[in-house]
């Protein structure tokens, strides 16, 4: 066996990211059960809300148009939560020490998971919208509005995925990451995702109207079905940008602090 390479050789930032994104996508594909669950669960919830609860929430039969944006976000939440588990798993495995001791940007291992999650979730969102169209979802959006809606959805997925990644980095184990992440998955229920906030008790209205999920839902709903958006779009983008920034910073700090500890 010959000696290969030299001391100065190292991968570029682009190659490093490409390799880690490829790795995470490969892991996602190999973990087919999780992928199917991430798609099936929101679809089942949508059918549940449309056919079981929908009739009593909105007897006109138009509930599917109301609930689809909420289901999309719920779907993004479920799909992203596995990022926390994946990241925590990597952090407890010996391979992270190898990455850290190589002359590369080792945080890219987390970026890889985030990008894979974005791809996975956009796919799941497409499936959810497809099924929604089958069960009577009638969006009024034009091409530009669709594009804007996809943009907002992508931003939301990115934000919540980085948040889950940070949780995965601070959690002691994959199962702990899964447990902490579960709390985040409740947030859509306390928003305008499934029922208008005006139907909630007044103390809850205050919470529901001022939490980040509500403006995101209202923006997507407005873009897809033409309901009034008002200033929700600004709030949605602002909340996402802020949380995204904090989650990334939180991730960087915890990634560096965890070096050498498993």
């Amino acid at each position: 066996m010959k000696i290969h390479g030299s001391i100065s050789k190292t991968a570029s930032f682009r190659t490093t990211n490409a390799v880690f994104i490829g790795r995470s996508i490969r892991l996602s594909l190999r973990n087919a059960e999780a992928l199917i669950m991430a798609i099936m669960l929101p679809v089942m919830l949508m059918l549940l809300f449309t056919y079981v609860f929908g009739g009593s929430i909105d007897p006109s039969g138009n509930y599917v148009n109301y609930v689809v944006p909420g289901i999309i976000l719920l779907c993004a939440g479920f799909g992203s939560s596995s990022t926390g588990v994946d990241v925590a798993h990597d952090m407890t495995n010996g391979i992270i020490d190898r990455f850290r001791t190589m002359p590369i940007q080792s945080l890219s291992v987390v970026t890889g998971h985030v990008v894979a999650s974005l791809a996975r979730n956009l796919l799941a969102t497409a499936v959810v919208i497809g099924v929604a169209l089958l069960v009577g979802f009638r969006p009024s959006a034009n091409a530009l509005e669709w594009l804007a809606a996809i943009g907002v959805i992508s931003l939301f997925i990115l934000t919540i995925t980085w948040l889950f990644a940070a949780i995965g980095l601070v959690a002691g184990s994959p199962s702990a990451a899964s447990g902490y992440g579960f709390i985040l998955l409740f947030l859509p229920y306390l928003s305008s995702a499934f029922v208008p906030t005006s139907s909630m008790p007044s103390w809850l209205q205050g919470v529901a109207e001022h939490q980040p999920i509500t403006p995101v839902i209202e923006t997507i709903r407005g873009l897809l079905t033409g309901t009034p958006i008002h200033d929700s779009a600004w709030w949605a983008v602002g909340w996402c940008a802020l949380i995204l920034l904090l989650a990334i910073l939180w991730s960087i700090v915890s990634f560096n602090r965890k070096a050498g500890r498993r």
Binding site: G5, T10, A11, S12, T15, M102
Partner: peptide, 8 residues
């Protein structure tokens, strides 16, 4: 993977 990360 490690080959690529090592710059090959």
């Amino acid at each position: 993977m490690i080959c690529r990360l090592s710059g090959l």
